[in-house]
């Protein structure tokens, strides 16, 4: 295994280096996707299957698709006006100083870490019985540190709002042609493959209750199904959001807060769950989080306020 690890570390370093120094955009994207594959392997070697799942779904998968689609749009668009001159020396030196300071600070912080002092982790594992759910990662995310996860969902919403404000949409008009006479592969992908992707997504959300998986990984896979439908022209990005869609976007945060507040009179604390109901409540929260995450990621892909089905 030592040989495996050293080859893996070497490959990650080479791929990371090459993906930022690639001569053109497309090569950089391709190398970045390949880097994602290796990073998932490294998470697997670090005993973190949850992160390997997240890396596979978000890092290599969705992000790779987003980059490839952006590259397609850029390729089709008119050649960019303006100069491609490198930044001035002052800016470059500023970047060098900034990265060096940041890297140095991280190195100092890492050096200060004491091995074996992860008492919070040990305590979480020891009190797993209280969490009412077998999977340590889910127990920490949704029960012990649920406040962090709630705020994280808020951050995701903020990111979506910010992205919608500043970026131009990627997929924004309905397909007027007849979908039936299009490439036969597309209808098979939309009708046969998409349900399988959705099924895997739902399975991953549900798997979070007893093993690696969870709302983020499952939500990313569900968003992947949506992206597939977009690329197959079964969905398109639309400018006007319906109330239902906005409701689904905030469903995760709302479910979290409502359940937390409703149980307050009995539990005496925000986001404290009664022992008997913990499993059911966490699964409900997890699925509502997954819906919001999937929709947010899909809208981050289209860059529009809504998605709509193409009427055939």
């Amino acid at each position: 295994m030592t040989l495996f690890d050293s080859v893996l570390a070497l490959l990650i370093a080479i791929l990371a280096w090459r993906s930022v120094t690639a001569p053109d955009l497309y090569r950089g994207i391709v190398l970045f996707i390949t880097l994602g594959l290796m990073l998932a392997l490294s998470w697997a070697r670090l005993d973190a299957p949850d992160l390997a799942l997240a890396e596979a779904a978000i890092g290599a998968g969705l992000l790779g698709i987003l980059l490839l689609s952006t590259w397609r749009v850029l390729q089709r668009a008119a050649p960019r006006q303006g100069s491609d001159e490198p930044a001035s020396y002052a800016v470059r030196w500023l970047a060098v100083v900034g990265s060096t300071v940041f890297g140095g600070t991280v190195a100092v912080a890492l050096y200060g870490l004491q091995v074996g002092s992860d008492r919070a982790g040990a305590e979480a594992l020891a009190s797993l019985d209280l969490a009412g759910i077998d999977q340590p990662v889910t127990a920490v995310l949704l029960n012990f540190r649920s406040y962090d996860t709630l705020l994280e969902m808020g951050v995701l919403l903020m990111a979506l709002i910010g992205a919608l404000l500043i970026r131009s949409p990627l997929a924004y008009e309905p397909w007027h042609g007849d979908t039936a006479v299009e490439s036969p592969l597309m209808s098979v992908l939309a009708k046969v493959f998409t349900p399988i992707v959705v099924l895997v997504g739902i399975f991953l959300v549900w798997a979070g209750a007893y093993g690696p998986g969870g709302a983020f990984q499952g939500g990313a896979v569900l968003a992947g199904a949506g992206v597939l439908l977009l690329l197959c022209r079964r969905l398109y990005g639309d400018a006007d959001a319906t109330l239902l869609l906005r409701g689904l976007l905030v469903l995760g945060v709302t479910a979290f807060i409502v359940i937390g507040l409703l149980l307050m009179p009995w539990q005496g604390a925000f986001l404290a769950y009664p022992p008997g109901l913990v499993y059911v409540l966490l699964v409900v929260i997890e699925f509502s989080l997954a819906v919001s995450i999937a929709l947010s990621l899909l809208l981050l892909f289209t860059g529009t306020h809504a998605v709509r089905a193409v009427r055939s």
Binding site: L68, S69, R76, L231, C232
Partner: peptide
């Protein structure tokens, strides 16, 4: 999905 994203224009 990556294969589809490679061949399709999203717009």
């Amino acid at each position: 999905l990556i294969g589809v994203a490679f061949v399709r224009h999203p717009g």
